[in-house]
Nucleic acid binder design. Structure first.
Lengths: 238, 238
DNA sequence: AATCAAAACTGACAAAAGTCATCTTTTTGT
DNA sequence: ACAAAAAGATGACTTTTGTCAGTTTTGATT
């Protein structure tokens, strides 16, 4: 599959307002804009690979990307799912290490690449931007601490419920008393998010469905009863 | 227990070389030094609490501190163990959030407190320092990603072995063909690091002891055969 | 429309790990 | 030095979850 280029000015990007680039001066933004390369990726294509050296920053314009690690037996663990407006691969770039994870397209995506020189240039000349990046990174770290504790002490059922709620928060399209998770995840991917076996996810999902907590719509999941799901996740006691 | 103050000039601190403050200009270092308050803590005392607002940065001069989260049932998960030279509580400070974890002294400690105004002042005036902090934070994030994947897909036995090796790397005092983990951890704390029940840790440790991988020395653990431990951790195949 | 492959699902079973109860040893405070 | 409390250890049992083997359904391709 050949890579297809496209181009959208950063200043006109509809996701600028959700991005860390929001608030950048016109000069800084055009410095980013003038050096970026934008590429369309198909589902299944890889953006970067574990073990390789970052050469710049990816910024999502459209689609969904999973960032995951493979263990020795080849099992995936999904660390993060990136959506439009998100940065991709900034951790390894900023820590000056190799990528520790692989990024693969879940839903056809448009992603811009900013060479590290230009990104670092803006970062260094602009303390406000730097501060915003630090704040975002540290917030992300807090999210991961939360996940760690969850993984350590919650059952698979609780974790699945919690992750469905989290996905609802991030990718939910609100309907009447219910919310569709706008993300076509395979059972296998969902298992890789929760940290369990595919079969276990399948069984638990059909439990949740029987109990009227969720419904299936094509490849997507609709959350029917977020409150009961939260109980399953042991997030609320009542 | 009353807090006992002490004072050591940052410039003379034996751990400066291991700290992120290393490389700061004499003016910046004295700005930190002039505003810090240094306190001696006894084992069991708390440095900060989950849910409270950070007012500054803690910098370890002596002792060991565990940073942990409590789950609903009151079970601890230890995120990090801080040693001399380490910063404490920087994540919540930099993300401008409440503390998401509690810090408690494991071994009698001396800890300096730097008010956030002064820390931020130095951070903002000194891009090199800022960059070093960002690099460290992003590196830490990588460590946590590693832990997440480990927690998701490894057995308790593998995780215990991996954590013993990790503790050996950080707190190990090398002897002849063996290494003493210089950290007096209770079985319960070790369980909170690995993310399992205390009884399970006790059983596995005595397995490892029977197999000659480790030995007990008072409250501490000596790693006798790191290679075999690494096999148990599934880190090496052979 | 037929064919193939991948994904989803189901059941049976085994292994891993948690829980609870109890006992022993060590540590701590008076 | 002693009592009380905490930590460590062990056994029995249950629950959870993973694995494996097989079937059904779905989706893509020719």
């Amino acid at each position: 599959m050949a890579k297809v280029e496209f181009n959208i000015a950063c200043s006109l990007c509809e996701h600028l307002k959700d991005s860390l680039f929001n608030g950048l001066s016109p000069e800084d933004l055009s410095r980013i804009n003038n050096h970026k390369t934008c590429v369309q990726y198909k589902k299944g294509q890889n953006i970067f690979y574990e073990g390789t050296r970052p050469t710049g920053l990816y910024c999502m314009n459209a689609g969904k990307v999973k960032v995951f690690k493979n263990n020795v037996q080849g099992k995936e663990f999904i660390i993060y799912i990136a959506k439009p407006g998100d940065f991709l691969g900034y951790r390894a770039l900023l820590s000056e290490e190799f990528y520790q994870a692989t990024a693969t397209v879940l839903e056809d995506a448009k992603i811009c690449f900013i060479p590290k020189e230009n990104f670092f240039e803006v970062l260094q000349k602009n303390p406000t931007f730097m501060k915003r990046v630090v704040k975002a990174v540290c917030h992300e770290m807090g999210v991961m601490e939360e996940k760690l504790a969850e993984l350590a002490h919650k059952s698979v059922r609780e974790r699945l419920a919690a992750n469905l709620l989290m996905l609802k928060e991030t990718y939910g399209m609100e309907g009447e008393g219910s919310s569709l998770i706008d993300l076509a995840l395979s059972r296998e991917d969902l298992a890789s998010i929760v940290g369990t076996a595919t079969e276990t996810v399948i069984r638990l999902l059909s439990d949740f469905k029987s109990d009227g907590l969720i419904a299936f719509e094509g490849k997507k999941i609709r959350v029917l009863d977020a409150r009961k799901l939260a109980k399953q996740a042991d997030l609320i006691v009542a």
